[in-house]
Amino acid sequence: MGALAAPRPSLLRPGWLRPYRYFAFRYKRTWRGTVTSSILYPILYLLAMGLGLGHLVNSHLHAVDQTGRLGGVGYVQFLAPGLLVASAMQWGTNESMYPVMGGLKWLKTYHALLATPVRVRDLVSGHLAWVATRVGGASALFLAVLAVFGDVPSPLGVLAVLVAVLTGLAFAGPVAAFTATQENDAALPVLYRLGTVPLFLFSGTFFPIAQLPGWLQVVARATPLYHGVALSRALVLGRVSAPAALAHASYLVAMATLGAWAARRTFTRRLVV
């Protein structure tokens, strides 16, 4: 037996690729649904916000504020790049809640993985690499829809997909780390309600955070979504200031790295006993 021994991981066959293949394979079962929603979601938002809310906002701004608090662009153009990143946050968070709980507890597929040469660190990297792929794909579709509607004025806007991926990872890491500490899924909806939803609403996606009271502005600036939204908006609208962009990107990279590190720790504590 063992005529063909399994090869060792190498640069060309990194360890994370093994679990990644599995996650990608599973996705084949559901990809149609997710692609449809990736296209439909922005269209619905753009229609609702553009024809409905946006119209009201624009006429109001025109009346009271000639310079424009939104930076002189229409409401939809202001909203769209933020919505792209806010969606990335949700995709990143979702992928690290129930799927992770399933792997740990319900289907126990993580246990099956770890009985093979796959290590915990490969599992965590594989998971995050898969989240990056999912968020990247969905964001690219999202951006394409925005472009079709004429809401991506700058070619730099293409880079917003990268920002979305980074933002997705900045959430996917910490949330996966948290999920691995949970015995059951009771806390996951709470995390969603008290974490994701407030961030979605108050991180500068729908209105500039300058509208918030001072202390809430400080809170908003401390969260990854604010930085993702600000950077994405600067790129899509073509108004990039290099130092600010660098600061936003560094924050997101730091958060994603910290999250990955924390996930490796909590996964190890949960799975290696």
Binding site: R26, R29, L107, K108, H111, A112
Partner: peptide
């Protein structure tokens, strides 16, 4: 683990595949 096969107490199969 590369040279070892494990049949755990729980099946840990992916029921949806």
């Amino acid at each position: 683990r590369r040279r070892l096969g494990l049949v755990p107490q729980d099946d840990t199969l992916d029921l949806e595949l």
